[in-house]
Design a protein around this nucleic acid. Structure first.
Ligand code: MN
Ligand code: MN
Ligand code: ZN
Ligand code: ZN
Lengths: 145, 145
DNA sequence: TTCTAATTGAAAATGATTATCATTTACATT
DNA sequence: AATGTAAATGATAATCATTTTCAATTAGAA
């Protein structure tokens, strides 16, 4: 029952859950749940391939449903300043083409069975970019008197 | 001086260093070094863009030189069972093409300044694959008497 | 029901990373 | 050279996500 409750919660709200976040959500419907079980179940679902695990650089793991009816193939923009995450699926066709080719070549050359892949683009989001410009400007101009 | 020692160590041996590993290496040439300084310097080099930071799924951060004279653009195969890492640069031209296109589209659409990207292929390495087959076989066959 | 193995929750342990703080260093100005 | 000041450093403690332990509960098979 705990496992079902966790998977259900993951299905409903589909953003990039941390373990603790998921724990709190599940806790409402299933107050007996323990944090350790959430950790264990997430690892389980990960190995089954039902969910993906990510590290977006804020010291904890995040999860989302694997590609399926509710989720389509996409990758992530990660703001290295504020941690904002943007899902994108632009150029998926192109990306899929190259990836398939790559998986072919790699699996043969290295005898490696590829289960999934993830691509991260790191940089600065709109907001952090403008914040930076602001501080640059004030730095160049000096403190106003 | 500590910083130089750290960068030098990174240049010489070009594996995927963890902080602690790097600390030990530097410690030989520069015994006064503190672990905290290694952490601080690695973050610094990361922000400058001289090195890249990775999470390969073994609970610690790993680093390598950014693309330059000593390092060429590549991505990683990660064995989710034993943690083995394989660098690959097959199909770089293709990959670079799509990536450039993608960076164009994304930076415009989301007003996002892209600094770098990383692609991980997750799966099973040759060894873990054969180990798995072995255990499957014995599981199907049952324990020999 | 009875037995056994898997699952679970609570709590403790682990371990990478970060924060603190007193000391040292680098370096510009006298 | 002496002085002043801010940055860098090393040692240590604190943090905090994750893992481990372990006793209790549950789920099925017999
Ligand atoms: Mn996503
Ligand atoms: Mn590499
Ligand atoms: Zn941002
Ligand atoms: Zn392996």
């Amino acid at each position: 029952m705990p496992r079902q409750a966790i998977l259900e919660a993951l299905r409903k709200a589909n953003k990039h859950f941390s373990t603790e976040e998921l724990y709190h959500v599940v806790h409402k419907k299933y107050p007996a749940i323990g944090l350790a079980t959430v950790y264990r179940t997430l690892e389980l679902l990960c190995q089954i391939g039902l969910i993906f695990k990510f590290d977006f650089g804020d010291g904890l793991s995040r999860y989302e449903l694997a590609v399926g009816p509710d989720q389509n193939h996409h990758h992530h923009l990660i703001c290295t300043t504020c941690g904002r995450i943007i899902d994108f699926s632009e150029l998926v066709e192109e990306e899929t083409r190259v990836t398939r080719e790559l998986e072919n070549v790699l699996s043969k050359k290295y005898n490696f069975k590829i289960d999934s892949h993830q691509t991260h683009f790191l940089g600065l989001c709109e907001k952090c970019l403008s914040d930076l410009k602001g501080s640059d400007l004030s730095a160049a101009t000096g403190t106003l008197k």
